[in-house]
Simulated scan of single mutants.
Amino acid sequence: MNKKTFLPKQDAIERKWHLIDADGKILGRLAVKISELLRGKNKVFYTNHIDCGDFVVVTNASKIVLTGKKLDQKTYFTYSGYPGGAKLTPYSVLMAKSPEKALFVAVKGMLPKNKLADRQITRLKVFKDDKHTHTAQVVASVK
Rank of each mutant, 00 (worst) to 15 (best):
V57F: 00
Y91S: 08
Q73K: 15
K9H: 10
K3P: 01
P99R: 13
D130P: 03
S98E: 11
Q73T: 15
F45D: 14
A102R: 06
L38W: 04
S62D: 15
V57S: 03
F45Q: 08
A31K: 02
V126C: 01
Y91I: 09
G109K: 01
R15S: 01
I50W: 04
K101P: 06
H132T: 05
I13T: 02
K113F: 06
G85Y: 03
F55H: 15
P8F: 03
K4I: 05
L27Y: 09
V65P: 04
L124S: 02
A96L: 13
K128P: 02
A86R: 07
G53L: 11
I26Q: 10
K3L: 14
G109S: 01
D51A: 05
K113M: 11
Y82L: 05
P83S: 02
D23K: 06
R119D: 12
R29S: 07
Y82M: 10
V44L: 13
Q10P: 01
V58R: 04
Y82H: 07
K69C: 12
F77T: 15
R119A: 07
I64S: 01
G84V: 05
Y79L: 00
W17I: 02
T47I: 07
Y91D: 11
K125Q: 14
T59P: 01
K115R: 06
H134G: 03
N42H: 11
N48S: 05
K9A: 13
K113R: 12
F6C: 00
T5N: 12
V57H: 01
K4S: 14
K3A: 09
K4F: 14
V142H: 13
A61D: 02
P8A: 07
I20S: 02
V107F: 04
K33T: 05
E14Y: 03
K108Q: 10
L103Y: 07
T89S: 10
K101V: 10
A140F: 11
K33Q: 12
A102D: 08
K41Q: 10
F45C: 05
T78C: 11
N48F: 00
R123K: 15
S92P: 06
A61W: 10
G28Q: 05
D129Q: 13
L71A: 09
L71Q: 02
L94W: 04
I34H: 02
F45H: 09
I121P: 01
Y82N: 05
M1K: 13
G85I: 00
T5A: 09
Q120W: 00
K97I: 14
S35A: 12
P99F: 05
I26H: 12
K125D: 07
V57C: 03
K69G: 15
E14H: 05
V138Y: 02
L19C: 04
L116V: 05
L103N: 08
Y46V: 02
K9P: 01
K33A: 07
L30R: 05
W17G: 04
V138C: 08
I64T: 01
K25Q: 15
P99V: 02
V107L: 09
N48R: 14
K69F: 13
T47C: 07
A106D: 10
K108M: 08
L37Y: 06
L7K: 07
T59V: 14
R119V: 06
E14V: 15
E100C: 07
G28V: 08
K33M: 00
G40R: 04
K143P: 00
K131D: 15
L71Y: 10
L88N: 08
H18M: 04
T67I: 04
L19M: 10
L116E: 08
